[in-house]
Design a protein around this nucleic acid. Structure first.
Length: 741
RNA sequence: GCGCCCUUAGCUCAGUGGUAGAGCGUUUGCAUGACACGCAAAAGGUCAUAGGUUCGAUCCCUGUAGGGCGCACCA
């Protein structure tokens, strides 16, 4: 055979062109779809973080969502797939911080405004690059409606929600224990910390009972077990379990072994009798449990709690001259040196879980800070605002929607996981001390002459700049510098996007049909979207939640640059074709489980693309107009029947989100039925002198090929569209993309 | 501590209350006028383990073992 007529399909030559044809057709935009497309079908694309490039995990979500969209579009639905990008506040700032470190610049020395603008340029450049990547992957989304989490109109919606939450008493400002990352200089929500097992020491320290209060005996003391002796200077009490052997000292005083100050002995059930000594030192500003104990015993404790560790993880002057200035770790050693005379025994090795920053692994310092919180489990206070149709807590709104099956999870087991998490919800700290994000819409009146201003610290919550204080008229206002936790804004994504498109899509396309995203952000994102969606609009944001897993390599390893096992979707798409990459991601992958992908697997589906190409070539090469009425044989009829049953099967699978089986069925049908059987059987007949039979064979072939292209299109859109375009049965200017399924 | 999940062919995974499936890999033929990125065939599994329910269980229930993961204020 002539080598120049390569029998192999060259994806590179056609993909860009096909995408261009689709884009120019305008059919990505539901408004341009033929009038036969009626009922809407909507997916809001989870906005990728615009702080890098798309990886294979993104390719997975693009493929899954594109399959749903293309399938529904072919079924005649008015399909809207709304793309977007996320500024990804903290994550992006971390990425940019690293970038600066590499360049030898100091993140902390750059003025806030300059830093913001630099990160903005960086983010917008990434965003643009990612858009190109999405197109390469064949995403048939409506670019005319693209949104960004920092669009002014989106920010406005987000800030309005905050204001509404505040007015309903669901947002509050308070000084409470929060997670502080000493490296990134910001607080983090409870979800943004992880626990690491660490080998530490458990120290047993004598707290001498104050002689003035004791029964006259000299050497009486309480033994306290702690892993953090460096915080002893901030101890303001000792709590013991009422049934512990220390109970007799309840109400008396002990001497703080470092500051020598008298501190009270409290009784509290939180102290675990079976752990340590049954006595707990109370350091409210460095431990959340201690903070709670302090709150419950305020009238028994005269000393105001204070902090001995600063925001950089170093000891403050309040820690005393011996410790001041030392890092926490050094202070721990130093304090033990000082405490040696009062140690009960040698410290024990102790393995425990320590909370660390999920990004950098730095040990989290619990700190008490004035922060903004969202109430998750309490009902709105006072008169709910007009639009609020319910008086349920944010949690109950979401729980009820899932319980009543208004929102379904695929796979269903995530419903249990969802419920379990919702049960243990705590209030959500949404303020971050970073520059990259949406500034919290709060102003503080600096004059505070008015009583109201005095009472609430001059807080003015307003989704737009108030210019002057509504209480005293002062124009001496200062805006809050903290920004929102990114998930506070992305948690509003479904309605924030649809409310701000110029076509006013909210009415038409909300609630959306499916939310397709990774299970790893179920708590970060999905739960919040459900809560905010119901709270703000009174309606669920989506009906079904399809959760996919994390893409792994053939040894089940997570992909990471350091392991060198990352697959860049665009690189492999360049070599094997986008269609092959998409198939490799779908076949063998079930909802909620981690897809496994390797170059071998992609190569396998590249082979399939070649097979499609060659089978089509065969059909086309042998197709010529015969002016005889085709006479279908029983074999032809059976073949057409097989096609119908394959079509039914695939449809059934697609309708229940079983993309794995849908794709596999289409693959199997094409290769092992159409190519191996139908084509093989047709060979002698095509050349037959019985023209009616030859025509029948041809007609059957071309019909089956055309239908097969439809069945494969959602999965492998490029090659199928290309073949459809050259089929003799295709009408001028028509596109497979909107052919009827 | 509370909770979720997994264990099926050499590998990666599907699946069903009634003789076990796919892809890749392996073996054996084939340079067959679409395709060697191919064609035709073949080998390969007490479906982790012990009980129970059932006429019948890989599938349902209980326990056990191994593995993965989520949540959590044990100093």
């Amino acid at each position: 055979m002539n080598k120049e007529l390569s029998p192999q399909y060259d994806s590179k030559q056609i993909e860009d062109n096909i995408y261009k044809i689709w884009e120019e057709s305008g059919y990505f935009n539901p408004d341009n779809l033929p009038t036969t497309h009626k009922k809407p079908f909507t997916i809001i694309m989870p906005p990728p973080n615009a702080n890098g490039s798309l990886h294979i995990g993104h390719a997975l979500f693009v493929t899954l969502q594109d399959i749903m969209i293309r399938y529904q579009r072919m079924r005649g639905r008015k399909t809207l797939w709304l793309p977007g990008a996320d500024h990804a506040g903290f994550e992006t700032q971390v990425v940019y911080n690293k970038k600066l470190e590499k360049e030898g610049r100091s993140f902390w020395e750059i003025p806030r405004e300059q830093l913001y603008n630099e990160i903005k340029d960086f983010t917008l450049a990434n965003k643009k690059y990612m858009e190109g990547q999405l197109k390469k992957l064949g995403a048939s989304c409506d670019w005319s409606r693209e949104k960004f989490t920092l669009d002014e109109d989106v920010k406005k919606v987000v800030c309005e929600t905050f204001e509404k939450l505040y007015n309903d008493g669901l947002v509050y400002r308070a000084e409470k224990p929060v997670n502080w990352c000493t490296k990134h200089q910001t607080t983090l929500s409870d979800l943004e910390i992880k626990y690491e097992e660490k080998q530490d020491k458990l120290y047993y320290i004598k707290y001498k009972v104050s002689p003035s209060a004791s029964s006259g005996q000299v050497d009486e003391y309480i033994e306290v077990a702690t892993t953090r002796p460096e915080t002893i200077p901030a101890d303001i009490a000792v709590a013991v379990h009422p049934k512990s052997k220390w109970a007799k000292f309840i109400g008396k005083k002990v001497i703080n072994p470092l500051t020598k100050k008298e501190i009270p002995v409290l009784s509290d059930m939180v102290v675990d009798l079976t752990f340590g000594t049954g006595a707990l030192k109370i350091t409210p500003f460095h431990d959340p449990v201690d903070f709670m104990v302090w709150q419950n015993h305020k009238n028994e404790i005269t000393i105001q709690p204070f902090s001995v560790i600063n925001q950089y993880g170093k000891m403050t002057a309040e820690a005393g001259t011996d410790l001041a200035g030392l890092k926490v770790k050094e202070a721990r050693e130093k304090s033990i040196e000082l405490l040696r005379p009062v140690l009960v025994k040698e410290p024990e090795d102790y393995k425990h879980q320590v909370s660390v920053c999920y990004k950098c692994g730095t040990t989290i310092e619990p700190r008490i800070m004035m922060q903004w919180f969202v109430k998750m489990t309490e009902k709105p206070a006072g008169n709910p605002s007009a639009k609020l149709r319910t008086r349920k807590s944010l949690r109950d709104l979401a729980v009820d929607a899932v319980k009543s099956k208004k929102i379904k999870f695929i796979p269903a087991r995530f419903e249990k996981i969802f419920m379990h998490w919702m049960k243990n919800l705590h209030d959500w700290n949404i303020s971050r001390q970073i520059v990259w994000g949406i500034q919290i819409p709060v102003w503080y009146c600096q004059d505070k002459t008015n009583e109201i201003c005095k009472k609430n610290d001059g807080v003015i919550v307003s989704s737009k700049n108030p210019e002057k204080c509504p209480h005293c008229g002062s124009n001496n206002l200062k805006q809050e510098t903290d920004v929102f936790d990114t998930w506070f804004s992305s948690g509003q994504w479904p309605y924030a996007t649809l409310m701000t498109t110029k076509e006013c899509d909210f009415k038409k396309y909300y609630p959306t049909d499916v939310m397709e995203t990774g299970w790893d952000i179920l708590f970060f994102w999905v739960t919040r979207m459900i809560m905010f969606g119901l709270y703000r609009t009174g309606k669920i944001p989506f009906k079904d939640v399809y959760l996919h897993g994390l893409v792994r390599d053939k040894d089940r390893q997570k992909m990471s640059k350091s392991k060198g096992n990352v697959i860049n979707p665009l690189e492999v798409a360049e070599i094997y074709g986008t269609d092959a990459v998409r198939m490799a991601l779908i076949v063998g992958t079930t909802a909620g489980n981690d897809p496994i992908i390797s170059e071998d697997k992609i190569r396998g589906y590249r082979n399939f693309a070649t097979k499609i190409w060659n089978a089509s070539r065969f059909v086309l090469m042998n197709y010529k107009k015969i002016d005889v009425k085709p006479k279908l044989t029983s074999a032809d009829k059976k073949n057409l029947k097989d096609l119908e049953s394959a079509k039914k099967k695939i449809t059934k699978y697609l309708d229940k989100y079983d993309f794995n089986h849908a794709a596999e069925t289409a693959y199997h049908y094409f290769w092992h039925t159409l190519a191996d059987k139908v084509i093989e059987q047709s060979k002698p007949r095509i050349k037959s002198e019985n023209l009616a039979d030859a025509a029948a064979a041809q007609e059957t072939l071309i019909k089956i090929l055309g239908e097969s292209m439809k069945l494969l299109h959602p999965f492998m859109p490029f090659i199928t569209e290309q073949i459809y375009q050259i089929l003799p049965t295709t009408k001028e200017k028509s596109l497979l993309m909107i052919e009827k399924w």
